[in-house]
Amino acid sequence: MDLSVKLPGLNLKNPVLPASGCFGNGREFASIYDLSLLGGMVTKSVTPNARFGNPLPRIAEAESGMLNAIGLENKGVDYFREHELPFLEQFDTEVMVSVAGSTIEDYAHVVEHLKGVDVIKAFELNVSCPNVAVGGMAIGTNAEALGKTVAMVKQHADKPVYVKLSPNVTNIVELALAAQDNGADGLVMINTVQGLRMDLRTAKPLLGNVTGGLSGPAIKPIALRMVYQVAQVVHIPIIGCGGISNAEDILEFLYAGASAVQVGAANFIDPWACPKMIEELPSVLEKYNLNSVQEAIGKALPQK
């Protein structure tokens, strides 16, 4: 069974990549399985300088999912380049680096400082983090700001640029087109859905950041709907993301128009979730009379 997919910058042996923020920078998972099994992986978001993140609690249970409000904790781009990226050179997997910032210039700064690093195959712009006060989702929910950011990053990046879209918008198509029209090489859909939970004992929001991002199976139908809508109007590839827990879920996203998928929260529940899905995928494709991943991509989209 041919599971391979070729996307800008990414030569994926299979369509499964752990999503940003759900895989650290690979070290913890590398101690339990061979990362070379993965089509690719996405690093934790990198910002120009170190960030500590949000006050605790940062995590809460939600129906069929979870809320998180980590707040882009990371040690900054220089530390990342010196101490995290070299570790990933030993694996035969395609590395996407997630880039975040508070201003448009922050994004440009990070990609500029990662120029010429061979292990990086593509960048993913996190313009959709719902858990930071400035930047993040503020950029990703405004078509003009998003377009400017993508255009600026494209001037500085030496690798293809994917844009991770926020679902917290009225018209996802408008944002997808803004990214595409300003030079994005691909889209990742979707980031978490903004949510909130209450602590009944204190009569206050449970998370230290008040709101958080909902992920897990609860958001899968939202993600599928958005991928399906956007796939009908853009000509750049889409990597689907949102609540994927098994190989059947992957196939749903492929049918909806995604060319590959990212797996997020499922890694927390079952640390071996990604290799298991990769192993199951051939038999699932076979079950539905498909001869390759390629054949499944966009199968559900209306014929033009």
Binding site: G53, P57, P271
Partner: peptide, 21 residues
């Protein structure tokens, strides 16, 4: 409170007296 429990999600991070996470 934890998300993963094995060091990945950064949901349970605290600070040391030196300011490290």
């Amino acid at each position: 409170r934890m998300g993963c429990g094995f060091g990945v999600c950064l949901g349970c991070v605290m600070k040391t007296v030196e300011g490290d996470a």
